[in-house]
Design a protein around this nucleic acid. Structure first.
Length: 499
DNA sequence: ATCGGCTCGCGCAA
DNA sequence: TGCGCGAAGCCGAT
């Protein structure tokens, strides 16, 4: 029986009983946030338990009929990624099923009972719906004495291990994370081929074309983008291109006219099609091809700030509301300036259609709407200006989150909520010199961005992107990052690596 | 171009 | 209890 090392045990939180599995009692992995086969601690845990008991492994993913109202852009990306994942699972002798319940806990429980599974592993998310479903599912497991484990496969240091409280900012979490890197920031074990094949009741075949067609039709208002190729293989190709060819540019990351300086990995990271820990490990190996400062800056954003977002959402359940800000200075200052005269007041529709007086803001919104992604620096400026140009901080937050969740491939992510809360409500920030509307919340100006980079260059890049998106071209012009994604090459390298 | 003050809470020394 | 530190910026003084 393979022994679990201590870090693997702490990645999982267990409910009560000990695992029960066998040739006719598969170990079930309820996959939601981490949609990949490689470098997935939750799947590795399921495989460990299964091997110890001679049991098969089955992955189940629940897709609700409404997809939480997500557009074709996000649903298409996810479902196409899952279609690839099903094939990769089969290659490791792992089964795959899709359930379609509006109540995930009930749907997964029914599926587990159907295949005779009494040990279920799931992954972790700090978002409220995800937490509620896992809690409901845990109660269903208790009721039938099934074993349930929750494994943080998304963070380098599991969210509940990194800190047991809401952190004030990056500087307090950074040290706590660093202390745990020797334990957690290690190479992954290879994903094994599971010995026991699933031979229980037949699992319904996924009709991918039909599932995709339905999602694309329902979400047609926000069409798919062509530049981002979904799936684990494409994700790895983007990572390899970044660390080998582009990480050396990372110190230029705050210049939106130079998109190649960014990793561009956020869509794949959001759906868990690549592991953040894998990105960190590969970046470290390639530090010589870039520079220590570039690597440090990338690591800070990839690990520290991303895991800080999980910490915030997990310990601040009102993570998408003004009340989610713990500190009074920020809430008080916004209230004190609530009646200040706004220089412009735009409706949601005017914002959505990028009809403001500001060419930098409009370009940012158009990049989001037509490209499904916004440059990191622009995200800050964009959200700060929504605070400045709407009736109230509450409305600003609502509009910013709506636009991000609707149009961004990485919408509905803790990082997105925290980004909006940082910009508008001062979360993880401190007070600054008091001024109109913003009070002590950090301010950003058009004038100073003009000194930092060429706004016309950025606007021109976005115009090209929008033109390509509207004409349905799959050209590299439509690719905000101009990534040369070498899918065939990535597949070949993977095949070679697997022998 | 560069620097310091702005403002705040935490962490640590005393 | 008090002081140093940071934080993806701004602004005015040098």
């Amino acid at each position: 029986m393979p022994l679990l090392d201590s870090s693997k045990r702490r990645r999982a939180r267990t409910r009560g009983t000990t695992p029960q599995a066998g040739p006719d009692a598969p170990v079930l992995y309820w996959m939601s946030r981490d949609q990949r086969i490689d470098d997935n601690w939750a799947l590795l845990r399921a495989c460990d338990v299964a091997e110890a008991h001679g049991a098969p492994v089955v992955i189940v993913c629940n897709v609700r009929a409404t997809c939480l109202g997500a557009g074709a852009r996000q649903c298409g990306f996810m479902l196409r990624g899952l279609r690839e994942l099903e094939r990769n699972a089969a290659a490791r002798n792992v089964g795959f099923a899709l359930t379609r319940g509006d109540d995930p806990a009930t749907a997964i429980d029914a599926f587990a009972k159907k295949i005779g599974s009494k040990t279920i592993v799931c992954d972790f998310s700090p978002l409220r719906d995800e937490l509620r479903w896992r809690k409901e599912f845990a109660a269903l497991c208790d009721a039938r004495s099934a074993h349930f484990e929750e494994c943080d496969a998304h963070n380098v240091v599991p969210c509940w291990e990194a800190s047991d409280k809401l952190e004030v900012g990056a500087r307090t979490l950074r040290g706590r994370l660093a202390k745990r890197y020797p334990e957690f920031l290690r190479e992954f074990p290879e994903m094994p081929t599971v010995s026991a094949a699933y031979r229980g009741p037949a699992i319904e075949e996924v009709k991918w074309d039909a599932v995709l067609a339905e999602a694309l039709e329902r979400g047609a208002a926000v069409p798919e983008v062509t530049w981002a190729v979904p799936g684990e293989t494409a994700a790895r190709a983007v990572l390899d291109d970044f660390v080998n060819n582009r990480m050396r540019l990372y110190e230029k990351r705050n210049d939106p006219s130079k998109p190649r300086a960014l990793s561009g990995l956020s869509p794949w990271l959001h759906f868990g099609q690549i592991s953040g820990q894998r990105c960190a490990l590969e970046a470290k190996k390639a530090v010589g091809k870039a520079s220590p400062p570039a690597y440090d800056a990338f690591f800070e954003e990839l690990v520290v700030r991303r895991e800080l977002s999980d910490n915030f959402c997990y310990y601040s359940p009102q993570y998408d509301r003004i009340e989610g800000q713990k500190y009074d200075w920020a809430k008080d200052t916004l209230r004190e300036h609530a009646a200040d005269k706004r220089p412009y007041v735009y409706t949601l529709e005017e914002l959505e259609r990028a009809k403001t007086h500001d060419d930098l803001w409009n370009a940012s919104q158009r990049e989001l709407r037509y490209g499904g992604k916004m440059h990191g620096f622009c995200r800050m400026y964009w959200a700060k200006k929504i605070l400045e140009w709407t009736e109230s901080p509450e409305q600003a937050l609502e509009f910013a989150i709506y636009l991000n969740d609707t149009y961004s491939l990485d919408g509905r992510d803790p990082s997105g909520y925290v980004g909006c809360m940082w910009s508008i409500v001062g979360v993880h920030d401190q007070g600054w010199k008091e001024r109109e509307i913003f009070g002590k919340i950090r301010y950003m100006t058009y004038e100073s961005t003009k000194k930092k980079f060429s706004i016309p260059d950025y606007v021109a890049r976005v115009n090209a992107l929008v033109k390509a998106a509207k004409s349905g071209e799959t050209s590299r012009v439509a690719n905000p990052g101009l990534f040369a994604i070498d899918i065939a090459g990535a597949k070949k390298r993977k095949a070679e690596a697997m022998g």
